[in-house]
Amino acid sequence: MITMEEEEIYKENILDHYRNPHNTGELQDYSIRHRELNPLCGDQIELFVKVEGCRCSDVKFCGKGCAISQAATSMLTDKIKNKNIDELKKITQEEVVNMLGIPVGIVRLKCALLPLKTLQKGIIKWEKGELCQTN
């Protein structure tokens, strides 16, 4: 028997994204490549973004970690495809939490926000013209 409270956090769509994440793998032809860690859980996400014009034309990620961080990355990569880079810089933490649609406490918030952090730090590196390799 699963109680209401549990259902709230491990909703079926979170588990679906976790079991079958979208956009996994590496891009050979990337503009941005950035990796971030969450030392708390040992979550890791490496993001590959292809920028064409000012647009994110493709995105893939490699990651391992908890259901929340991996599902959040899967959902975020879906969301950012074909969006303008300037738009991506403006994605807020609240938007990511809303996208997940589950109550995340202060500790698990770090897991949920890891993909956003990876994306936005990667964009900053790219804008500075830094070599977009693994950090």
Partner: peptide, 9 residues
């Protein structure tokens, strides 16, 4: 199951 997911449950 990731240890953090176990802990949350």
């Amino acid at each position: 199951i990731h240890p953090h997911d176990v802990s949350t449950i």
